[in-house]
Lab assay of single mutants.
Amino acid sequence: VKVYLPNKQRTVVTVRDGMSVYDSLDKALKVRGLNQDCCVVYRLIKGRKTVTAWDTAIAPLDGEELIVE
């Protein structure tokens, strides 16, 4: 899953069964001094942002793009 992060940064996270968006992005956010409490995650669908819950399973999102703001 390709993830666009604040400050024009981006990362790619590996999809693993049983993991949530929260778990999958935890390290990427912490390395950048961010956490899930201060950010909102969106799914990018056909160029439009849709709010996605942090506890959403990451497996069904394989191949999609997320935006964290």
Rank of each mutant, 00 (worst) to 15 (best):
R10T: 15
G47V: 02
V31R: 14
A53F: 01
Y42W: 06
V1N: 03
V3E: 03
V15Y: 04
D23R: 07
K8T: 07
V15F: 13
G33P: 00
P60Y: 14
K49G: 02
D23A: 09
V1M: 10
N7I: 01
V40N: 05
L29V: 02
R43C: 03
P60L: 14
D23L: 05
D37L: 04
I45T: 07
D23V: 06
S24E: 03
E64P: 03
R43H: 12
V12T: 11
D23N: 07
L29A: 01
C38I: 12
T56N: 07
Y22L: 12
C39P: 02
V40I: 11
I45A: 07
R48C: 06
C39R: 00
G47E: 04
A28L: 14
T11S: 04
D17Y: 07
Q9C: 05
T52P: 00
K46Q: 13
R32T: 09
L61K: 10
V40Q: 15
V31I: 12
T56R: 07
D26G: 11
N7C: 05
I45G: 09
D37P: 03
P60A: 15
T50L: 04
N35H: 06
Y4P: 00
R48N: 12
K8A: 12
R16A: 13
L34W: 08
T11V: 14
V15Q: 03
I45Y: 12
V41M: 03
E69D: 08
M19D: 11
W54Y: 03
V40F: 02
K2S: 09
T56D: 12
K49D: 02
D37G: 08
L25I: 04
P60T: 14
V12K: 11
I58V: 09
V51E: 10
G63M: 08
V12I: 11
I58S: 07
Y4K: 15
P6W: 00
E65H: 08
A53N: 08
G18S: 08
V12S: 07
V31H: 05
D26N: 06
D26H: 11
V40S: 07
N35R: 11
I45V: 12
V41L: 10
L34P: 02
K2Y: 07
R16L: 12
G33W: 00
D26S: 11
D23H: 06
S24R: 01
R10G: 10
N7V: 01
S24P: 01
R16W: 06
Q9E: 13
S20M: 02
D55G: 09
L25P: 06
D23Q: 15
S20Q: 02
R16F: 09
G33F: 01
A59F: 13
A59V: 10
A53D: 13
V13R: 02
A59N: 06
E69L: 01
R32Y: 13
D55E: 11
D17G: 11
D17L: 07
T14P: 13
D62G: 12
V31Y: 07
K49W: 08
K46T: 06
T11F: 12
T52Y: 09
Y4A: 08
S20T: 13
G33E: 08
L61E: 08
T56E: 15
R32K: 06
I45R: 11
V13C: 09
E69P: 03
V13I: 14
K2Q: 07
L61D: 06
G18C: 08
P6Q: 06
V15C: 13
V1D: 00
K8S: 11
T14F: 13
R32D: 05
L25W: 00
E64G: 08
G47F: 00
D55S: 09
Q36K: 14
Y4M: 14
V13L: 09
A28Q: 05
D62L: 12
V21Y: 13
V13Q: 05
T11E: 11
P60V: 12
D26F: 08
